[in-house]
Structures are given as C-alpha cells and as structure tokens.
C-alpha cells in the first residue's frame, strides 16, 4: 500500500514537472526582441513576480530599476530607466522578450539575460567564483519569468 501511494505521488510529480509544456531557454524564439508565446502556458502570478523582482538572489531588478508602484523597496538602483509605465510602452510579448534576454531588444545593454544558459565568457558556478559548466541554469526559470511579466503589464501610468 505504501509503495502504491509512492507511485501515485511520483506520477503527480511527473505531471507537475514543467518540462513537458515549458519552452527551454534554447528554444525561445524572438521576433524583433519579442516573445509571443508564454514560456509555460500557465498564467503568471504578479505577486510572485514582485517577489522575484525584489529578491537579491532572484531577479534583483531593483538593483538597477526604480518602481513607483513598489515604494517599500529600500535603495532601488538608479542605473536603468524607472519601470513605471512599462506596461504602456511595451506589449506583453515585448516584455517577455526583454526579461528573457534584453540583448535581443537593446543591443549591448547592461541588463543581464535572465533566461540564457550558454555563450558566456568564463561562466561561473553562481556567485562562488568557481567555474560553472554550460549550459548553466538560467537565472530565472520559465514560470518566474511569466510571473515577472504578469506584474510588468500592470505598470500603467
């Protein structure tokens, strides 16, 4: 009986494993910087998007961007344009493209590519300073990117 239970939960795990319907980093198709299709098919959760954007170990977008809608973030950076109104300036597909790999929209930009796994110079193993092996894990996973995009589209002036 125990083993039966275990098998059921294993099956649930397989079904929940995003890999099935997820677009892998290497398979994302950019059209002039934009990514039309959702990376997961699961609607993004804007509240988790905020968490991703304000957590150092995740997106840490606030290291560079200020966001008027998030006045509680301490010491947002001043490197990049404020994100207020990003949902007016860009379509959902364009925002998905910018978050996945901003270099496809802004050539040579300082903004890191959050859904890119290889082609780096001296790739590291996270922040250890040691060598990493490509393909690296992307900085954000597919659902985190969808969550961030779901929040960005709400940023209307």
């Amino acid at each position: 009986m125990n083993s039966h239970l275990w098998r059921v939960s294993a099956m649930v795990t397989v079904i929940a494993t995003p890999a099935i319907c997820e677009t892998a980093p290497k398979d994302v198709s950019f059209a002039e910087g934009a990514v039309e299709a959702s990376l997961t098919g699961v609607p993004g959760d804007p509240a988790n998007g905020v968490k991703v954007m304000t957590t150092n170990a995740l997106g840490n977008c606030v290291a560079c961007h200020q966001i008027g809608a998030l006045p509680d973030v301490e010491f947002p950076g001043t490197i990049a344009p404020p994100l207020d109104g990003a949902g007016d300036r860009w379509s959902e597909a364009e925002l998905r493209g910018i978050v996945a790999n901003a270099k496809m929209t802004f050539e040579g930009t300082f903004m890191p590519a959050f859904y890119k796994v290889d082609g780096f110079v001296r790739p590291g193993d996270g922040f250890t300073g040691k060598a990493g092996t490509e393909p690296l894990a992307p900085i954000l996973n597919a659902q985190q990117i969808e969550d961030v995009v779901a929040f960005l589209v709400t940023l209307k002036e």
């Binding site: 001296r122 790739p123 590291g124 193993d125 996270g126 922040f127 250890t128 300073g129 060598a131 990493g132």
Partner: peptide, 12 residues
C-alpha cells in the same frame, strides 16, 4: 578584483 568578477557570476 576577485570580488568584483565573482559578482558577475563568473569564474574569477
């Protein structure tokens, strides 16, 4: 220098 390069998620 080690610290600054490490912060780029690089092999220093």
């Amino acid at each position: 220098f080690v610290g600054c390069v490490r912060d780029t998620r690089a092999e220093t």
